[in-house]
Design a protein around this nucleic acid. Structure first.
Lengths: 160, 160
DNA sequence: CTTGTTGTAACAGTACCTATTACGTCAAGC
DNA sequence: GCTTGACGTAATAGGTACTGTTACAACAAG
């Protein structure tokens, strides 16, 4: 399970946009988000592209452009986010087809596909229990707990 | 989510050993299992090594050596198998630590870790619902359904 | 002592992810 | 219109992980 960080990047970006949305309706740039995630703006744009295709965010092009949540954060579940950014199955089947001359080789793939399908359903159901709004609340609670400097509750406009 | 096939290979090997166990207590070689999985014996040995460390199979070395289930297949759940062969977390966090000067950057990792932990728990609970014995029953049912030749129900001793 | 098998290291090839640069496209605002 | 700032995307490089394969030491049965 070589884990990638696409869901993490997408969730981080959405939490950031949800926080900004509390105080303004302006579009935020991929560069600003990238400064908080600590990555390259192109990585953010790639994630945003998938979220836009899923109708989770809306993007404004041209000068002074950017991105913002397309819907209230209470209505965006992490299941949606997961399905927007991740398309590979959780578990891979055989790299090369198993021996069809053997009963186990012939029956193993359908049997495992059933199991894996149930697992992915369970994973999606669990992710559905958390919305971006829930996540932001928890993020801010954790940030307070970790804060050492009293000036830590800086406004969202100063992420870098 | 770059999916690997370790769980698939382990489950396939265990189903094969469970089928053999029905008619004999002999040890089977990694070469025989590899012939059914259609891979290299070393790949099987790598999986067997982890299953052995977890107490799922027992290995006999020396001449005429091999491997067999250490316990009845009804007592081996896919959760155990998953935990034996897979150690990486399902979702990766940030490749580089997020900006600690931003409230979201400071709180996102603990918040996501909580979500990801719940997801892994749900995944394990779902995998726990299936034992190797259950899997074998389903494998054989699927093999029968797919069988075109009447000689398809060959004894387990002839996998290749 | 021979023989067959495991355990493991080493290596090549492939594939994917992240980071980065570069550039075309686009719309706001003067 | 033109300028400008930002997105969308291709291309590339470096790193990492998995699979397949060869090779060989360790080991136990007979």
């Amino acid at each position: 399970m070589a884990a990638n960080s696409r869901l993490t990047v997408a969730a981080h970006a959405l939490a950031w946009m949800a926080l900004v949305r509390r105080s303004s309706d302006e579009f935020v740039t991929s560069e600003r988000i990238a400064a908080s995630v600590n990555t390259n703006p192109v990585v953010i744009r790639r994630a945003i592209g998938r979220l836009r295709a899923a109708g989770i965010v809306e993007v404004q092009r041209g000068a002074g452009a950017g991105c913002r949540l397309a819907r209230p954060p209470e209505s965006i579940t992490l299941r949606e986010v997961y399905e927007a950014v991740e398309h590979e199955p959780l578990f891979g089947l055989h790299a090369r087809p198993p021996n069809q001359g053997c009963p186990v080789g012939r029956g193993i793939q359908p049997a495992l596909a059933k199991v894996y399908g149930g697992v992915e359903d369970a994973l999606r159901a669990e992710l559905e229990r958390t919305t971006v709004a829930d996540l932001l609340i928890d993020v801010l609670a954790s940030a307070w707990r970790t804060a050492v400097e009293p000036a830590s509750d800086a406004p969202p406009g100063t992420p870098a």
